[in-house]
Design a binder for these strands. Structure first.
Length: 480
RNA sequence: GGGGUCGUGGGCCAGUCUGGUCUACGCUGCGCGGCUUGGGCCCGCGCGGACGUGGGUUCAAAUCCCACCGACCCCA
């Protein structure tokens, strides 16, 4: 068989991420940017099916931990939004407002829904018996970003899940934060993503939160992307919103709250960017809208046998509960190969006259771009093997990428050098915002992402930038 | 926030500097037919745009001027 080297369709994403990313979004039919409203794009079927699978995974985690779905209105009266001072200060500049008619108040398109949920929580919560209250919604939110927008990464409209939980004690609320982290971690592992979990610095917290924890995902060019946050709100909202309950001891108390926001659009962006290559999308089995594509290689006079075999394989895949497609369209096989590779289908099964006669099938793995023969009767077993192995390979690659990016530094000059090399920095830090601003200035945009909490890091010296005594080890990186 | 580039069939674009020869090139797409199918075949016929929007200059504007709208990229 003469095997031509297929043409690479995309640039190296590590060298020119912007170009790679725009091209893949368009060619893999993920988004269409021609809606011509800044920061708003059309999510196409290939993307929505991916996002729905991401959503299912996270919603499953939430449901298993006692959350229930709700749907709150898109609009929030400005008076609600203004009830918590830090919150409105943090968001006011980027709120889309709808001017009220004569005598009516202005409305905001939700930038996030704390101030929509909590007036209702104050009506619904009366007794410790009403707690915990754990509700979530999967919706779009709206933020009038002033910075350059980028589809899925920074849009003025994006999709997320937001969970809003209320508890009778601080301990329970803090446990919820840990649970949120667990839910996110489980999901991200199924997506094959590498990430770090950090506690954000004081000045970088969610507006209105006591504590903010974030998942930063490693992206091409050594940048990071925040893909989920969970916040301990304490009683910062329950006081102004008057969410009180009568406890067992007969005392009225304010609830302790948490909110959790895994970003679906951004998780999709992370999956696309982490796994994709010069041939297009690469999806792990778990979130691939089409997991296996069966491609017939017709030959005159044998169509019936060949197509028959393809549909027979389809039936076997159906029984395996695999999302599959038998591509019996009229294109040439080669053009189908390109297409399904571009769309990231993890496994392709090719069936021609050779396979029919030898009772074998040809497998092709998208992640390794490797082809091999499989005995027909071992099909199911091999599909399951591949499914598992693809995730393992993608995950390892992602983690290797993260590990090779991390570098510990001891001084400002080492930090500047690391930033030039596109590294993610670990360093001792004094904790002062002033010092963080200096870091950003000196490195051309590196930010203190926070104290790493998924891996225990002990302080080994003084603050790398100012030399004062360090209180923690922080992750420093350039963010999207 | 600063800078750059751009807007012409469904997609990518040539043409704009030097206004007329442009109801406008080419590729791709789409439709029909033929031939075929082991990595994007090929052949024939056909479809499809008055050039982002508004105004101005001019005998004449895709082309020059102004404003607006929108997009993309880069740097902070």
């Amino acid at each position: 068989m003469v095997q031509l080297q297929p043409e690479k369709a995309f640039p190296d994403k590590e060298k020119n991420f912007s170009e790679w990313y725009s091209l893949i979004l368009e060619r893999a039919e993920l988004v269409d940017i021609r809606y011509n409203v800044k920061g708003f794009v059309v999510y196409r079927p290939n993307l929505m099916r991916l996002i729905n699978l991401i959503r299912d995974e996270l919603e499953r985690g939430l449901t298993e931990t006692g959350h229930q779905p709700v749907l709150f209105p898109l609009v929030i009266p400005m008076s609600y939004l203004r009830k918590e001072e830090e919150h409105i200060t943090g968001f006011e500049a980027e709120v889309f407002k709808i001017k009220g008619e004569e005598g009516e108040e202005d409305l905001a398109l939700r930038p996030t829904s704390e101030t929509a949920f909590y007036p209702m929580y104050s009506l619904w919560i009366h007794s410790y018996r009403d707690l915990p209250l754990k509700l979530f919604q999967t919706v779009t939110v709206y933020r009038k970003e002033t910075k350059a927008t980028r589809p899925l990464i920074r849009g003025r409209e994006f999709l997320w899940i937001e969970a809003h939980d209320a508890f009778s004690s601080k301990e329970e609320a803090l446990n919820q934060v840990s649970e949120d982290i667990r839910i996110t971690r489980n999901a991200l592992e199924k997506f094959g993503l590498a990430f770090i979990v950090v506690e954000r610095e004081e000045w970088d917290k969610f507006p209105g939160a006591e504590k903010t924890f974030a998942f930063d995902c490693i992206m091409p060019e050594g940048k990071v992307l925040q893909i989920a946050t969970t916040h301990y709100l304490g009683t910062k909202f329950s006081v102004p919103f008057e969410i009180v309950f009568l406890d067992r001891d007969g005392c009225k108390k304010h609830v302790h709250q948490t909110c959790f926001g895994p970003g679906l659009s951004r998780m999709a962006a992370a999956i696309i960017s982490t796994h994709g290559d010069e041939f297009g999308l690469v999806l792990p089995f778990e979130v691939a809208p089409i997991q296996v594509v069966v491609v017939p290689i017709p030959k005159e006079g044998f169509e019936e046998k060949i197509f028959g075999k393809c549909f027979e394989i389809g039936e076997r895949l159906r029984k395996l509960n695999v999302r599959f497609k038998v591509d019996d369209s009229e294109d040439r096989p080669g053009s189908k190969f390109y297409k399904w590779e571009l769309f990231g289908v993890p496994l392709r099964i090719e069936v021609g006259i050779k396979e029919v006669e030898e009772k074998k099938v040809t497998f092709f793995r998208r992640d390794l771009r490797k082809r091999w023969q499989v005995d027909e009767h071992l099909l199911e077993q091999e599909v399951l093997n591949v499914k598992e192995d693809i995730l393992k390979v993608l995950k390892k690659k992602a983690y290797d990428r993260l590990e090779s990016s991390l570098v510990r530094i001891n001084s400002r000059s080492e930090g500047i050098e690391a930033s030039r090399n596109g590294k993610i920095i670990l360093m001792n830090f004094c904790g002062r915002q002033e010092c963080a601003e200096k870091v950003k200035e000196d490195t051309g945009g590196y930010e203190i992402r926070g104290k790493r909490i998924d891996v225990e890091e002990k302080v080994w010296g003084s603050c790398a930038w100012c030399g004062r005594s360090a209180e923690k080890v922080v992750v420093v990186a350039k963010a999207f």
